[in-house]
Amino acid sequence: MKMKQFYMFTLAVLLTVGVPDWSGGTSWEAEAAASTAANVPPAAENDIATVPASSAIQADAVQRVQMSHADLAWVPLFASREADQSAIAKTANFVNRLLKNAKPSTEQLVGEDAFFTTSVDVMLTDGTDIYLQFKDSKHVLIHIGEDNYIAQDATALKEFYELLAVSPQTDVSTLKPTIGQTVRIKGSDASNYEGTVRIFVETSGSSGGYMTAKGVDYPSKRALLVHTAPYSEARYDFQFTMPAYGEAIDGTFKPIAPGT
C-alpha cells in the first residue's frame, strides 16, 4: 500500500458517543464528526524522496509518527509537541535499527493481509515517508518511495506497542445533556494534525453518511449540527452549551425536541 492511498482512507473520522434517553423517553445519539484537514498536502507519488536502507534518520527530521492496525489507531506523535520528543527520538532509533539490517525485497501485502497488519508511518520534514508493515512478529516490510525492503527484528513490534498509546475513547462530561447545560468533550483520536470536530444530535434509527452542498459530512439526514470546534495535534478539549436548535442537512435550523 502506497502512502498516498493510506491517507485517502483516513481523511475523515466519525467519533460516536451514545446519549441515553431524554426526558421525553426518545433515544438520542450525539455524534462528533472530525472533518480532517491535513497540515501538509501529501506529496505526489513521484516526488517522494528515497532514502537508502543504510541511511540513518535524525530525530529532529521526524515530523509525525502514526501507528495503526486495521481500524484501530494509536495517538500520533508530532514534532511540534514537546511531550512527544522522547518518543520520537526512540522511534528514530527503531527505524535506524531496522534500516541497518534491511535488504531489498519485492514482497508486498495486499487485501486483508495489508488491512490487518500493524503499520507505522514515519513522516520526515523533507516529505519522505518511511512506511513500516509488520508482516509477523519478526519481519518488517519497509517502503520508502518506490523502494521496498524487508528487515528481521524480533523485538521491534513489541517496542512500538510499548512506545505508542492506543487512542482512548472520547470523554464526554455528560451522556444526558439538557438544553442549556454545559457539555465538555475531550479526546486525542483525530486522524490528522488539525481540523474541525462537529457535534451532532439525531434520533435513533438507521444512519448513513451524507454530505451537504458546503462539503460538511452528516452522519444521517436526521442529524442536527449543534456545535463545531477546532482540533490541533490530533487532540481536542472544548465545552459548549447545549442549544435548543440545531442546523439540519438542508441548512435550516430545527428545534431539538424530545419525543419526536
Rank of each mutant, 00 (worst) to 15 (best):
K2F: 10
K2C: 13
Q5W: 11
T16D: 04
D21R: 15
G24S: 09
S27T: 12
W28V: 15
A32Q: 03
A37Y: 12
A38V: 07
N39H: 14
V40I: 15
P41Q: 03
E45G: 07
D47N: 10
A49Y: 06
A53G: 11
A56T: 14
I57Q: 01
A61G: 13
R64G: 02
V65E: 00
L72F: 00
A73H: 11
W74K: 11
W74L: 06
V75P: 07
P76W: 02
A79S: 12
S80R: 09
S80N: 07
D84H: 11
A89K: 11
T91Y: 01
A92Y: 05
F94Y: 04
K103C: 00
E112N: 13
A114P: 06
F116D: 14
T118K: 15
T118M: 09
S119K: 15
S119I: 12
V120E: 03
L124P: 04
L124F: 01
T128Q: 04
L132F: 06
L132R: 06
Q133V: 01
F134L: 02
D136M: 04
H139G: 02
H139M: 09
L141N: 11
G145N: 03
E146N: 10
D153N: 07
A154T: 09
K158C: 01
Y161C: 02
E162F: 00
S167G: 15
T170G: 14
P177S: 07
Q181M: 13
R184G: 13
I185N: 13
G187A: 01
N192M: 10
N192P: 03
E194V: 01
R198D: 03
I199K: 01
F200R: 04
T203R: 12
T203L: 05
S204C: 06
S206E: 08
S207N: 08
G208F: 09
G209F: 10
M211W: 14
T212L: 00
A213P: 00
A213N: 10
A213L: 11
A213T: 11
G215I: 04
G215E: 10
V216M: 10
D217I: 12
K221I: 08
R222P: 06
A223R: 08
L225H: 10
A229H: 09
A229W: 01
P230G: 08
S232V: 14
D237C: 05
F238V: 06
P243L: 04
E247R: 15
G251C: 06
K254S: 11
I256L: 00
I256A: 01
T260N: 11
T260Q: 15
